[in-house]
């Protein structure tokens, strides 16, 4: 009980200090804060909001060790170095501490937004990519019906035929897949590196564009439509809590009705904490050169 009331007092003090910092209360000492009176008719003082001038709050850092008086602090440090798992963050009763809960919520929010929000129009304009729809009408249908994300819409087909160069050696696609934020985070570095690298090698690159609500398999449809020798898709991966910004490149040589998943060459984990995007662009150029030379991709390339 003693510990609980001590904790309670600590919390009260911290809240008061925080309020004081934001200019909502007189000063930091709880003793000097006037509490609303309980007498009938007493009104809480309403003060106008004043900007504190402090930096905005940031999501709590969970890299620290929150266990009070641990048996062996050094041992927990070593443990935390050994795994990115959420450990050593102690508890509030049986529940997570507030900071750990907020960090989890923030990570999940980022993952959800990566999946459910669209790539912005401003981004597409800046990257000079026009937008093509698949048969999936919206995100819900896209998630529930994977096959619809593998087929271009009628209007999409028409637009591609009008706007794209036919018979390219390499057709580049940007596809949102399961993470729009990974596209905005990585494409600005990967796409120029990839395009310039291929062009410098004398390879004829088609007109790149963006596919909304698209899956990996949509590249087969595009490849057939434009008679592309190679199609490379830069596509958002399913987000985890560690990063929502991981992107993959799927490369297929001359896709047709007989194409199977094993025919695709995959390069995954493109993000700042994995393969950095600029590096990934240069690497993809080398892979595509090999594919053009071997006239094969995926498992067939490795044979």
């Amino acid at each position: 009980m003693a510990a609980e009331s001590q904790m309670e007092q600590l919390i009260v003090e911290n809240v008061m200090k925080e309020l004081a910092k934001r200019g909502l209360m007189g000063n930091g000492s709880p003793n000097q804060v006037e509490m609303p009176e309980k007498a009938a008719g007493a009104q809480p003082k309403t003060e106008p909001y004043r900007e504190s001038g402090d930096d905005p709050l940031t999501i709590p850092d969970i890299t620290g060790i929150w266990v009070p008086n641990p048996e062996n602090l050094e041992a927990i440090k070593v443990m935390k170095q050994a795994t990115p798992a959420r450990i050593g963050l102690y508890r509030a009763g049986t529940r997570p501490k507030t900071g750990a809960m907020l960090k989890f919520m923030a990570d999940h929010a980022q993952a959800m937004d990566a999946v459910f929000l669209d790539v912005s129009e401003e981004f597409l304009q800046k990257m000079n990519l026009f937008l093509v729809d698949t048969m999936a009408q919206d995100k819900e249908e896209f998630l529930k019906r994977p096959e619809l994300g593998r087929k271009l819409s009628r209007e999409g087909e028409k637009m591609i035929k009008e706007k794209c160069e036919k018979n390219p050696q390499v057709q580049i696609l940007v596809v949102d897949g399961l993470s729009s934020s990974s596209i905005e985070a990585n494409v600005p570095d990967v796409l120029p590196a990839l395009t310039q690298g291929l062009t410098a090698a004398g390879i004829k690159v088609g007109t790149p564009f963006f596919i909304k609500n698209g899956r990996v398999g949509v590249q087969d449809h595009v490849g057939k439509l434009l008679n592309a020798e190679v199609v490379v898709s830069l596509i958002g991966e399913r987000p985890g809590l560690v990063t929502a910004d991981s992107m993959s490149a799927y490369i297929i040589y001359s896709p047709d009705e007989n194409t199977v998943e094993a025919d695709r060459t995959v390069f995954s984990n493109i993000h700042q904490g994995g393969t950095p995007p600029a590096e990934a662009g240069a690497h993809l150029v080398d892979v595509i050169k090999r594919i053009l030379q071997a006239k094969a991709s995926g498992m067939k390339l490795n044979q």
């Binding site: 795994t83 990115p84 798992a85 959420r86 450990i87 963050l89 508890r91 009763g93 049986t94 529940r95 997570p96 750990a100 989890f104 990570d107 999940h108 399913r238 985890g240 809590l241 560690v242």
Partner: peptide, 24 residues
């Protein structure tokens, strides 16, 4: 699962905290 976040399988499941909570 530590903090409910499976860092290998990339999904969320019941945490060590949840385990103790449900029992209580």
């Amino acid at each position: 699962v530590p903090g409910g976040d499976d860092i290998m399988l990339s999904y969320q499941d019941t945490s060590y905290h949840d385990d103790a909570s449900v029992r209580e």
